[in-house]
C-alpha cells in the first residue's frame, strides 16, 4: 500500500512540475495556455463536486453555485470596481452562504430526491440570472470584467497576460485541490465516507449527519464560487448559459471517467477529458456523442474509472504470472 502511495506521490510531483513548466514547454503558445486554464477550472469544479460525492450525493446545483461566485465577482467589479483579489473571497462567501441557507431544507431529501432537488436549485439560479435584466443583465450577461493587476513593491504583474493568468489559475486550482485533499484525509473525511457507506449507521454511532452534510455542501459550493470568480475574470464575459446544467453534467462525466474513489480520479478525468474535448472540437456534434459513448462504456466495463486501471493491470499481470508458473 505504501508502495502505491509512493508511486501516486511521484506521479503527482511530476504532474505538478509539468504544469508549472508548461508555458516554457509550449513556448508561451496562447491556445495551449488557454487549454491549461480551462483544465484548471474543470479540475476545481470536478474535485469540489467530488467532495460532495464523498458523502454519497451528486449535486447538479454545482454549476449554479459557480455562477453565483462568478456573478458576485463580476458585479462587484463592474459596480464598485473591486478587483479579483477581494472579490474571490466574497464570491466564496456568498456562494457558501447561499449553499448553507439552501442546504438546510435540501438536506432533508435523500438519494434521487436530493439529486433532483439540487438540479432544481441549479435551474432556479440560472433562471434568476436570466430574468432580472436590471441587475444581472438577463440572457446577455455581464461584459467587460477585467482581470486583476498585482502591484507590490518590486513586483508588478498584469494578469491580462495569458501566462500570468495561467499561473494564477494553476495556483488557485492547486490550493482548491489541496484543501479538498486535507479535508478528505482528515477525521472529518473519514466521517464523510462513513456517511457515504451508511447514513443510518453513521447516525447511530453518534455522527451528526445533517451538520456534516451542510458543512461539506457549503464548503464545496464556496470552492465552486471561487472557481466561478476566476472564470469570470478570465473570460471577461459571463452569461447564464455558462452556468447551465451542462456544466454540472460535464463535471460529473469527468468524475465518472476519472474515478470515484480517490481525489486522483476527478483530477485525472478533468485533465484528460478537457484535452480530448479540445482535440475533438473540429468534429462538432460527434464530440458530444463521443463523450456519451465514453461515459456508458466506463460505467459498464470500467466501474471505478481510469484511476483503477493500474490496479487492474497489476492484477492481470499477477494472474498471468501465476498461470505461467
Amino acid at each position: 500500500m505504501t508502495e502505491n502511495t509512493k508511486v501516486a506521490a511521484g506521479v503527482w510531483l511530476i504532474a505538478i512540475a509539468f504544469a508549472f513548466l508548461l508555458p516554457v514547454i509550449c513556448s508561451y503558445d496562447k491556445y495551449i495556455l488557454h487549454v491549461g486554464i480551462t483544465i484548471a477550472f474543470n479540475i476545481a469544479l470536478a474535485t469540489s463536486m467530488w467532495l460532495i460525492w464523498t458523502l454519497g450525493f451528486i449535486s447538479f446545483a454545482h454549476a449554479g453555485f459557480m455562477g453565483i461566485g462568478a456573478y458576485t465577482s463580476a458585479l462587484l467589479f463592474t459596480g464598485l470596481g473591486w478587483s479579483l483579489w477581494v472579490n474571490m473571497w466574497l464570491a466564496a462567501a456568498v456562494a457558501g452562504l447561499m449553499a448553507f441557507v439552501i442546504s438546510i431544507p435540501l438536506m432533508r431529501t435523500r438519494a434521487v430526491y436530493f439529486f433532483m432537488a439540487s438540479w432544481a436549485v441549479g435551474e432556479v439560479i440560472k433562471r434568476v440570472f436570466a430574468y432580472y435584466r436590471g441587475i444581472f443583465g438577463g440572457w446577455d450577461g455581464i461584459f467587460n470584467i477585467q482581470p486583476p493587476k498585482l502591484v507590490l513593491p518590486g513586483l508588478n504583474i498584469d494578469f491580462s497576460s495569458r501566462v500570468a493568468y495561467y499561473y494564477l489559475a494553476l495556483v488557485c486550482c492547486g490550493l482548491i485541490v489541496y484543501v479538498i485533499h486535507r479535508i478528505v484525509r482528515s477525521r472529518t473525511g473519514m466521517i464523510y465516507w462513513s456517511i457515504h457507506e451508511s447514513e443510518i449507521l453513521a447516525q447511530h454511532v453518534g455522527i451528526n449527519v445533517l451538520k456534516h452534510k451542510v458543512i461539506a455542501f457549503s464548503t464545496a459550493c464556496a470552492l465552486a464560487g471561487v472557481t466561478g470568480a476566476l472564470y469570470a475574470h478570465y473570460h471577461t464575459y459571463i452569461n447564464p448559459k455558462t452556468f447551465d446544467i451542462w456544466q454540472s453534467e460535464f463535471s460529473l462525466v469527468h468524475i465518472i471517467v476519472g474515478g470515484l474513489n480517490t481525489l486522483n480520479g476527478p483530477v485525472l478525468g478533468a485533465t484528460l477529458l478537457t484535452v480530448v474535448d479540445e482535440l475533438l472540437r473540429p468534429t462538432g456534434w460527434y464530440r458530444v456523442i463521443f463523450f456519451g459513448v465514453v461515459v456508458i462504456l466506463t460505467v459498464l466495463f470500467l466501474p471505478g474509472g481510469l484511476e483503477t486501471v493500474p490496479a487492474r493491470l497489476r492484477a492481470l499481470v499477477g494472474k498471468w504470472r501465476k498461470r505461467s508458473d
Binding site: 460529473l252 458530444v288 463523450f291 456519451g292 465514453v294 456508458i296 466506463t298 460505467v299
Partner: peptide, 11 residues
C-alpha cells in the same frame, strides 16, 4: 444509471 442515461442524452 444517472451516468448511463446522461451518456444516452449526449448520444
Amino acid at each position: 444509471s444517472l451516468a448511463v442515461s446522461m451518456g444516452l442524452i449526449f448520444i
